[in-house]
Design a protein around this nucleic acid. Structure first.
Length: 210
DNA sequence: ACACGATGGCGTCAGGTGTG
DNA sequence: CACACCTGACGCCATCGTGT
């Protein structure tokens, strides 16, 4: 790990690690989540442990994060946000908060990102970048898992197909042994020819005897 | 009970690629 | 060209299974 990385981790301890919790901790959080059922951003803000401040985070990003927050962090545009946080969105008390000056509307949500990034300090830009990358990494891992799962299913299917085809080969080979070969067919026709000839000869002899 | 390796998930960085 | 996105690699941490 780089020095920069270490410093960053010291600065960002609350957000960077999703703790795996003991049962007691889990119950505590479950209780808090129940209490948070109708939290608005500002109410939640008061209950958050060690928020990280992120300026001007657009609503579109917040919504995206909330959609994907089942295993991630809770993002709110606190404290004046109208974004309502549902219990499902609250995860391990890890939050990222944004500054007070946001007036997110559907219109400005879709503006170019670089426009939205205007006026941000280098550190704010960095926080935004880290957030996006965090989400991208989650998506990437999810996608990778799905791909691996799909490949495993394909392997299973192809192995089954192979087995079925092998069974068919055995079955057809067994049937093939019951069918006379070409040589046998030829021999049979020779016998027939010889017998017919013999019959003809015998008939001729009978005719002579009459 | 404890130590230890394996495993899985996460955040971050770095580098490649696409896009306006 | 600047920016955003994707993804491999890395390190950290928690958890689990196993041997002692």
């Amino acid at each position: 790990m780089t020095i920069e990385n270490q410093n960053l981790e010291n600065d960002m301890t609350p957000i960077s690690k999703k703790p795996k919790l003991s049962k007691a901790q889990d119950e505590h959080i479950t209780r808090d989540e129940q209490e948070a059922t109708s939290f608005t951003g500002s109410a939640l803000h008061q209950s958050i442990i060690s928020p990280i401040h992120m300026a001007n985070l657009p609503l579109s990003i917040l919504e995206h994060i909330q959609q994907h927050a089942n295993t991630g962090n809770v993002i709110t545009s606190l404290p004046n946000s109208s974004v309502t946080i549902t219990p499902n969105d609250i995860d391990y008390h890890q939050t990222i908060t944004t500054s007070n000056n946001i007036t997110s509307t559907p219109d400005n949500n879709n503006k170019k990102t670089d426009e939205k990034a205007k006026g941000l300090t280098a550190d704010e830009k960095r926080q935004r970048r880290l957030l996006r990358n965090r989400l991208a990494a989650k998506d990437c891992r999810k996608k990778k898992k799905e791909y691996i799962k799909q490949m495993e299913q394909t392997i299973t299917r192809l192995e089954k197909e192979k087995e079925e085809l092998n069974d068919k080969i055995v079955e057809l080979k067994a049937k093939a042994t019951l069918i006379p070969s070409n040589d046998q067919m030829m021999m049979n026709s020779d016998d027939n020819y010889r017998l017919i000839k013999q019959v003809g000869e015998l008939n001729a002899k009978l005719g002579n005897m009459k």
